[in-house]
């Protein structure tokens, strides 16, 4: 038997922290409701704030299978839901002919049965295994086109798929559905209406520090408080793409790999590529701007230390 779904918001928070996911109480509340009410959870937010991660952590912590559907433009039923196994169907037809069976009607019900179905992620997600219903992650839904979004409506509201040749396949137990979007376009209201919505913001300094500590346990304390303060300042700057939490973690990792114990101008300039991904942004920050930010960060961190110590 798999881990039971949490009974309170506190349980949800501790469940997530088991997977080293530091969540806001607001997110935990929404997630808890989604689990309890068996509704899909629709997560929006800037890239790299941990939307996808939550599904992975959830699957791991609840010990459920994770079924992931990565969306892209032109995603269609045959790669997202099901496809017929044509070669097997053809062999079956040839065999039937060789055996002298010629009743076409029988043959067609035979060949278009579940046995010849190749299940793709959405159909797989309707199957409950011994661990219970899986976690279905529909990642970056904004990348698909509108027709596919419309197709999802049936699955998300009734947890069922209609296959013309067979009929309706319904989930015995509804899967836990997490949908993410980076807002490269707006998702239609009809789909959002079926979900619980949550906007994930950039974390506060305090929470970001907790995240770094949870994900990179070995990091020097001074370095982590400096780099978090630096990233927090960077998010106030006028940049094309602000760094997300994923970038913070990458950067922290990069700095530890280089055996940095405290931030300095050179270390920042050399590793800025882990944090900023557009040349314009890098050119703007590198050098004097970074030094200025670092100066502010250092005084801020030492003030904090003076206050606490």
């Amino acid at each position: 038997m798999s881990t039971a779904i949490p009974e309170t918001i506190e349980d949800t928070l501790s469940l997530l922290s088991q997977g080293n996911y530091v969540a806001d109480r607001s997110l935990a509340t929404t997630l808890f409701l989604a689990l309890k009410m068996e509704r899909p959870l629709f997560l929006e937010g800037e890239a790299g704030v941990g939307k996808t991660e939550i599904a992975k952590v959830l699957a791991q912590a609840l010990d459920r299978r994770l079924v992931r559907l990565q969306c892209y433009e032109g995603l269609d039923v045959s790669s997202a839901v099901y496809e017929w196994n044509y070669s097997r169907q053809m062999i079956e037809i040839r065999l039937a002919e060789a055996a002298g069976e010629i009743d076409r009607k029988d043959l067609s019900t035979d060949v278009f049965s579940e046995e010849f179905l190749i299940e793709r992620p959405l159909l797989q997600a309707l199957r409950t295994d011994e661990k219970g219903p899986p976690v279905l992650l529909i990642d970056e839904l904004d990348r698909t086109d509108e027709p596919f979004e419309a197709y999802l409506l049936e699955i998300l509201s009734d947890y069922q798929v209609s296959i013309p040749e067979i009929g309706t396949i319904k989930a015995e137990q509804p899967p836990i559905v997490i949908i993410t979007s980076n807002r490269t376009r707006e998702i239609h209201d009809a789909l959002k209406r079926r979900c619980l919505y949550h906007w994930i913001d950039y974390p506060t300094a305090e929470r970001e520090l907790q995240i770094v500590a949870a994900r990179l346990p070995g990091i020097a304390k001074q370095l982590s408080s400096q780099l978090v303060a630096f990233v927090q300042r960077l998010r106030q700057e006028d940049l094309f793409k602000l760094p997300g939490v994923a970038e913070t973690l990458d950067w922290a990792d990069a700095l530890t790999q280089l055996d940095t114990v405290a931030l300095d101008g050179d270390a920042i300039d050399n590793t800025l590529g882990a944090l900023l991904k557009y040349q314009d942004d890098i050119a703007k920050i590198r050098g004097s701007e970074a030094a200025k930010l670092l100066e502010q960060v250092k005084s801020e961190v030492s003030n904090l230390e003076a206050m606490s110590g």
Binding site: T30, F32, L33, A34, R193
Partner: peptide, 25 residues
Amino acid sequence: AVKTLGVGQRQDFYWCMFALFVNRE
């Protein structure tokens, strides 16, 4: 949802309502 959640902390209640009533940033 409120029945599921129980009437407890104001903050939890806020996010519960938020999740249901809001669907755009």
